[in-house]
C-alpha cells in the first residue's frame, strides 16, 4: 500500500517537474487575482488590510479550481487513470495520493507566495504568520474536496465550469475559518478558535473526501 501511495505521489511530482508551465499557471493566477483588488477597490492601506484575508483566500479557492480541472483529466484521457484504478489497492488510496501530490504542487508554493502578497496588503507580521498557518491547514481542504469535484466531472462537457459550481459552495467553511483567522488577529482577538475549527474541518475532509473521490472515480470510469 505504501509503495502504491508513494508511486502515485512521485509520479505526479515527476510529471509536474516535466511540465512546469502547467502548475505555474495557477500560481500566477493566484498572484494576479490578488493584485487586481487594490486596482479595483483603491490603495488605502487601512482598507486593504481589512480585506486582505478574504481576498487572499478567495483567490486561493479560485486558483485551486483552475488547477484541479486537470487533476484527473489528463490521466483519464491517456488511459492511465484506468490503469491506476486497476491496481490492487483501493481507489481511496489513489485519491489520497493524488490529493497529496496536488497539495505539494499547488498548496505548498502558495504558502511561499502568500506572505509577499500579505505585505502588499499592508498586513502586520503576526497577521501574515497567521495567514500562512491558516493556508497550511486550509489548502489541503481545497485539494481534498476539489478532488471530489474533479472526479465527478471527469470527461464532461464544460467540466471546468461545472467543477466550480459544484465545489465552491463546499469550500465555504474553509473560506470563513481561514479568512476569519486573519481577521481575528487584526482585531486583536487571536486566531486559535478559527484555526482549530479549520483543522477539524480539514480532518473531516481527510477522512471522507478520498473515500468519496475513489467512489466517484469508479462511477465516472464505468
Amino acid at each position: 500500500m505504501w509503495r502504491f501511495l508513494l508511486t502515485v505521489i512521485r509520479r505526479d511530482l515527476l510529471l509536474a517537474a516535466r511540465r512546469k508551465g502547467d502548475w505555474l499557471t495557477s500560481q500566477f493566477f493566484f498572484v494576479m487575482v490578488v493584485s487586481m483588488f487594490p486596482l479595483g477597490i483603491g490603495a488605502d492601506p487601512e482598507q486593504l488590510r481589512r480585506v486582505a484575508g478574504g481576498v487572499l483566500w478567495v483567490a486561493a479557492l479560485l486558483a485551486s479550481l483552475l488547477s484541479l480541472q486537470r487533476l484527473y483529466a489528463d490521466d483519464h484521457r491517456d488511459g492511465s487513470l484506468e490503469q491506476m484504478l486497476l491496481s490492487p489497492q483501493p481507489a481511496l488510496i489513489l485519491a489520497l495520493g493524488k490529493a497529496i501530490a496536488h497539495w505539494l504542487i499547488f498548496g505548498l508554493p502558495l504558502l511561499v507566495i502568500a506572505p509577499l502578497l500579505g505585505l502588499q496588503f499592508a498586513l502586520p507580521p503576526d497577521a501574515i504568520g497567521t495567514l500562512v498557518i491558516a493556508l497550511a491547514i486550509g489548502t489541503p481542504v481545497l485539494s481534498l474536496l476539489g478532488g471530489v469535484g474533479a472526479a465527478l466531472t471527469l470527461g464532461l462537457r464544460g467540466g471546468g465550469t461545472l467543477l466550480t459550481l459544484l465545489i465552491l459552495p463546499l469550500y465555504v467553511p474553509a473560506l470563513i475559518f481561514g479568512a476569519g483567522a486573519v481577521d481575528g488577529v487584526l482585531a486583536g482577538l487571536g486566531a486559535e478558535a478559527q484555526l482549530s475549527l479549520l483543522g477539524a474541518f480539514m480532518g473531516l475532509c481527510l477522512l471522507l473526501a478520498p473515500w468519496v473521490t475513489g467512489a466517484a472515480l469508479r462511477v465516472s470510469v464505468d
Partner: peptide, 8 residues
C-alpha cells in the same frame, strides 16, 4: 455521481 455529491 449526483448521489455522491448530494451526500457530500
Amino acid at each position: 455521481a449526483g448521489a455522491l455529491l448530494i451526500l457530500v
